[in-house]
Design a protein around this nucleic acid. Structure first.
Ligand SMILES: [Mn+2]
Ligand SMILES: [Mn+2]
Ligand SMILES: [Mn+2]
Ligand SMILES: [Mn+2]
Lengths: 220, 220
DNA sequence: TTTTATTTTTAGATTAGTCTAAATTTTGTT
DNA sequence: AACAAAATTTAGACTAATCTAAAAATAAAA
């Protein structure tokens, strides 16, 4: 049985290993957990003791298979809860993360299985992130950052690279939700912004920031 | 912001105050929380410091209005989650308590409001216990223990006085779920058991234990 | 290859929550 | 009223998780 704190560390380490490289270094974990390097070293020892991490002093950590399974299971729970909150309770995608951050620690496999069934076995969460299966695996969806599209190309919004509610709310305002069809009109070289056309026919300008953080699947 | 431990103490104290009398004494809390009297004294001081309890050394504790609101809100959350687990996820009434015990600590009023709406504003949980409103109030339902009924009287099962899964599973086996219509055939004086008739016409014998822990509403 | 900067670990303290054992207060009984 | 029993509180110690400051190891730069 893990404490909520231990679970959070494990999840953070998994995500850093995915984003950066393995082994994961102490400072990266400290930054992600908003704590000190000293605390991280402490916790790393505890998690290694429980055989969730492979740890060698000064060399960083790798997740063991046991650690990986626990971490992906947390992500599975988190994302399923996010689907529940949006699909069933009517929350908006910018409101669910914090609540799911708590709900993911509810420890019941039966609960998650039944929730998965109740939701109809969703493959992606409200932010377009994949939901791991019970073994902790998922298949990557072909998607690229909006910024890589050329004028004339068509695409569908499939995800975000920035999960802050500020960004998500801004996308709401722009009408750029998941599944939205877009067409690139042109790229403004001056500030790297873009003019895109939405399905309602309206053209909008999206800043460099948006272009760098919105995933789309190229459809033509 | 309260810790999960603090919330659990508060809930325990509320329930003891309801069951026994106020003020609540230290040993009762220790028994309920399965901890020592010393730990309870410690926690009582902390909760008094936060003005959730009125505490006088050696005299036991009373909940303040603030404490009562928090305690009943926990009970509200617990029971709404139990409804969700049974109604939406298909859990049986003997499986939900432990999970709700964790879920009740998820701290989001918005979540509970939306859940309440999603469930259609239920007034009772799967065990027949009333769900407090947002201010922590509910109206008592007219119900009596099965044991008080006389031969010939009709009733509807409305609740249980024993929430152990052993008891609930035994009731499943007997076909005595919530809402079940029954008729008292006769009382066996020898062992205080009872013969009752169910709506399917079958008569069954129920032991003294059942008779003392099953609530029914008299319907005729 | 020294020297410097960065990263990581250790040492020592702190807080929440817990425990056992001992002291104190209250309650019940002669 | 005096004594015994029960309930409660205090004292002191322990673990998990955290922090700051200092020491040690590694990496980068001169
Ligand atoms: Mn999230
Ligand atoms: Mn998400
Ligand atoms: Mn319950
Ligand atoms: Mn219940």
């Amino acid at each position: 049985m893990l404490s909520i704190t231990e679970e959070n560390y494990l999840k953070a380490i998994f995500k850093i290993a995915e984003r950066d490289q393995s082994p994961v270094n102490t400072n990266a974990v400290a930054a992600s957990m908003q704590t000190t390097a000293a605390s991280v070293t402490d916790m790393i020892k505890r998690l290694s003791e429980k055989e969730l991490l492979d740890y060698e002093k000064y060399k960083g950590v790798l997740l063991t298979e046991k650690g990986r399974k626990l971490a992906t299971n947390l992500i599975r729970r988190h994302r399923l809860w996010e689907v529940f909150l949006t699909e069933k309770l009517g929350f908006s995608w910018d409101e669910v993360h914090e609540i799911a951050e708590e709900l993911e620690h509810i420890n019941s496999d039966q609960l998650i299985d039944r929730m998965d069934t109740f939701l109809g076995y969703p493959r992606f969460d409200p932010h377009g992130d994949p939901i791991p299966d019970a073994d902790g695996y998922w298949t990557r969806r072909p998607q690229v950052l909006l910024g890589t599209l050329l004028p004339g190309q068509l695409g569908v919004v499939t995800g975000v690279d920035d999960h802050t509610s500020a960004f998500l709310q801004y996308l709401n305002q722009l009408g750029l939700g998941l599944g939205e069809n877009i067409e690139v009109i042109n790229r403004v070289l001056y500030d790297n912004s873009m003019i895109i056309k939405l399905k309602d026919g309206k053209s909008i300008a999206v800043s460099d920031k948006v272009v760098q953080h919105l995933f789309v699947k190229i459809s033509a």
